[in-house]
Simulated scan of single mutants.
Amino acid sequence: MIKKFIDKKVLIVIRHLSLQETIDLCDILLENDFNFVEVSFSDDGADKILEGLKNRFGEKICLGAGTIFQEENYRKALNCGADYVLSPGLSFKIAELSKKDGITYIPGVYTSTDVQNALEMGFDFLKLYPADLNLLRSYRGPFPKVKFMPFGGVTDQNIISYLNAGASAVGIGSYIANKELLSKRDLAQLSKRIANLKKLIGGINGSMY
């Protein structure tokens, strides 16, 4: 699973969207070979969105459940078919449950202590939240083997900077999972954004360290 993340480079974060808006978005993502999607459980009814996507797309999309740090939501996510779970911080409880259940867990980190704790627990693919370009660069020294995935504020304007700074992948939210564009069905503009991301990533694949 982690290798697939790194190959694809982008995880799209779904928040505050209806099921139909999410389906419309996923159709465009798949057309551009993006198939990693996270449904944030900060939204009420996130389990229904995840379940609906799973029923619609099956294995075509690698579906994750985000903002998971409570066991209740963790259980809901697994029952709805989540392929992996993420949390904004390092949750010792979710880490323990994920190991027991054999599901990929991507904990969030920000401080060096967070990173060390995650490594001690056996996790080296980490969500850097909130995203911080300077922090990412500084962590390459003491944590050269950690695979960081920055989240928060990533767009076409800075994605290359993050990847060139050593990010293994990035999480992108409202720039792509955009409520305004989807609610008025401006799918052409959304398609342009997604296609541009694909072009940007394609221009640097093979040249990153």
Rank of each mutant, 00 (worst) to 15 (best):
G52T: 10
A167T: 01
D44R: 07
Y129Q: 02
S207A: 05
T22R: 00
G206K: 13
I103C: 00
Y105M: 12
D43C: 14
S168T: 08
K100G: 03
A131R: 09
I61T: 05
L25K: 06
S161H: 11
V39M: 13
G89C: 07
V109G: 07
R140C: 02
F41N: 00
G102T: 01
K4A: 05
E21F: 04
L17Y: 07
L136C: 08
S183N: 11
F125K: 01
T111D: 11
L182F: 00
K54Q: 06
E72Y: 05
S91F: 06
K9G: 08
A188C: 02
E31T: 00
K93S: 09
L128S: 01
S112P: 11
T67V: 15
R140F: 07
N196R: 14
L50V: 02
N117C: 13
Y105P: 05
L187R: 03
G122L: 04
Q157F: 15
R137H: 11
S174R: 14
L50M: 10
D114M: 03
E96C: 03
L181Q: 03
N32D: 03
I68Q: 13
F125Q: 06
M149Q: 07
K8L: 12
L190Y: 08
P107Q: 11
I106Q: 00
L197Q: 05
V146G: 00
G152F: 02
V85P: 02
R140S: 12
V39Q: 10
K48T: 08
R15H: 13
N205P: 00
G141V: 13
K192Q: 13
A46W: 04
N158M: 12
Y139D: 03
I14H: 08
N55K: 11
F69T: 11
G102E: 03
K3R: 06
L78H: 14
T22D: 09
L30E: 02
N164Y: 13
Y110C: 09
S98N: 02
I103F: 10
C26F: 01
E21H: 01
V85C: 09
F92V: 14
G173M: 11
